[in-house]
C-alpha cells in the first residue's frame, strides 16, 4: 500500500506543476507581419476579423519561456530555452492573428492547424505536419517528414516534403509540389500552372486546367493518374519508358521508341506533361460533377 501512495504522491503533482498557462494579447495592424518561432507540439492558427494578436493555451514547463512582442506592423512570438530533446508534444497553443496578416511559422517539432487566413502563410518544420483550411493568398510549406493537407481555394501554393504525403483539395491558381517518397494527391483543383514532382511517390490528379495553363507531373518510380474534365482541351506529352500509358480519352498516335507520346485531346489549349521512368500513366475522364466545381458537391466529392 505504501509504495502505491508514494507513487501517487510523486506522479499526481507533476501535471499540475508542469503546465504553464499562456494568455498574451497585443494590438497589431490588419496586415501585420507575424513571426512564430520555435513553438512545439500542436499550434492552432486562426485568422480573425480583429486587429490583434492573441496567444492562449498551455505549455509544459519544459517547453521553455514564451516571448511575445513587437510593433503593430511586426510582431514575434516564440519559445526560448526549449528542451526539444524531450519532445514536448503535449503543448497546445492557439494563436489568433488578423486574417490578412502575413504569418511565418518555423520550428523543428511544431505542427500547424490553420484556418480562416486570407493573407500569406509560410511554414517550415522538420518533424511537424501542416493542415490548412480556407483561402490564404499564398501558402509556402516545407516539412521533412510530415504530411501536408490543404483544403480551399489557395491562389498560390508551394509545398515541399521528403517523406510526407501531400493532399490538396480545391486549390486554385499556381501550384508547386515536390516530395521524395511521399504521394501527391490532388482533387478539385482548377489551376493555371502546376508542377508536381516526386522521386518514388505516386501522383494522382483530379481537376481542371485553365486554357493556356500547364500541368507538369513527374515521378521516377511511381504511377501517375490524371483525372481530367471530359471536355478539356490539352496538348499532351506523356513519357513512360518502362511502363504503360492508358487512356479513357481517344489518343491519336503511338508512343515513340523512347516511350514518349505527343498528342492532343479536344481542341488543345492547355499543356500537360507527365513522365515516369518505371511507373505507368493513366488518363481518366472525371465525372461531370467533379469537372465543374461550382456544381453541388463538386469539391467535396473529390477527396480521396
Amino acid at each position: 500500500m505504501r509504495p502505491a501512495v508514494l507513487l501517487l504522491a510523486l506522479i499526481l503533482p507533476v501535471p499540475l506543476m508542469a503546465q504553464q498557462r499562456i494568455d498574451r494579447r497585443m494590438a497589431v495592424s490588419s496586415t501585420a507581419s507575424i513571426r512564430i518561432n520555435d513553438l512545439v507540439g500542436m499550434v492552432r492558427l486562426v485568422g480573425w476579423d480583429r486587429d490583434s494578436l492573441v496567444v492562449v493555451g498551455e505549455l509544459p514547463a519544459r517547453a521553455g519561456q514564451l516571448y511575445f512582442g513587437g510593433s503593430t506592423d511586426a510582431a514575434k512570438v516564440g519559445l526560448e530555452g526549449t528542451d526539444t530533446g524531450s519532445v514536448v508534444t503535449s503543448a497546445t497553443l492557439e494563436v489568433r492573428v488578423p486574417k490578412h496578416a502575413r504569418v511565418s511559422v518555423r520550428g523543428a517539432v511544431v505542427s500547424l492547424d490553420a484556418g480562416g487566413l486570407e493573407g500569406d502563410l509560410d511554414f517550415i518544420t522538420t518533424a511537424g505536419r501542416l493542415h490548412v483550411e480556407g483561402a490564404p493568398r499564398t501558402v509556402t510549406a516545407e516539412t521533412l517528414d510530415g504530411n501536408v493537407e490543404v483544403a480551399g481555394p489557395v491562389a498560390s501554393l508551394r509545398v515541399r516534403t521528403a517523406g510526407g504525403t501531400v493532399v490538396l483539395r480545391g486549390v486554385r491558381g499556381d501550384l508547386t509540389v515536390t516530395t521524395v517518397s511521399g504521394a501527391i494527391l490532388i482533387g478539385g483543383a482548377r489551376i493555371s500552372r502546376a508542377r508536381l514532382e516526386t522521386v518514388s511517390g505516386e501522383i494522382a490528379w483530379k481537376g481542371a486546367i485553365e486554357r493556356g495553363g500547364t500541368l507538369d507531373a513527374q515521378t521516377h518510380s511511381g504511377n501517375i493518374e490524371l483525372r481530367l474534365p471530359p471536355t478539356l482541351g490539352a496538348d499532351l506529352e506523356l513519357s513512360a519508358p518502362s511502363g504503360a500509358i492508358t487512356s479513357e480519352f481517344t489518343l491519336k498516335g503511338k508512343p515513340s521508341a523512347s516511350g514518349t507520346l505527343r498528342t492532343s485531346i479536344g481542341d488543345g489549349g492547355a499543356a500537360i506533361t507527365a513522365r515516369t521512368f518505371r511507373g505507368r500513366i493513366s488518363l481518366l475522364k472525371q465525372p461531370e460533377v467533379d469537372a465543374n466545381p461550382a456544381a453541388p458537391g463538386g469539391i467535396s466529392g473529390t477527396s480521396r
Binding site: 520555435d38 518555423r106 520550428g107 523543428a108 517550415i124 518544420t125 522538420t126 516545407e142 521533412l144 515541399r160 521528403a162 515536390t178 521524395v180 514532382e197 522521386v199 513527374q218 521516377h220 513519357s239 519508358p241 523512347s258 516511350g259 514518349t260 513522365r275 521512368f277
Partner: peptide
C-alpha cells in the same frame, strides 16, 4: 527522355539538400 529524367533527379537532389539546409 532519359537525360531529362536524370537531370530532374539530380535537380531534385540539390533542391532536397537546399531544403535540409533551411531546416530549423
Amino acid at each position: 527522355v532519359l537525360a531529362g529524367l536524370l537531370r530532374a533527379a539530380h535537380r531534385q537532389r540539390v533542391e532536397f539538400l537546399q531544403q535540409a539546409a533551411r531546416l530549423p
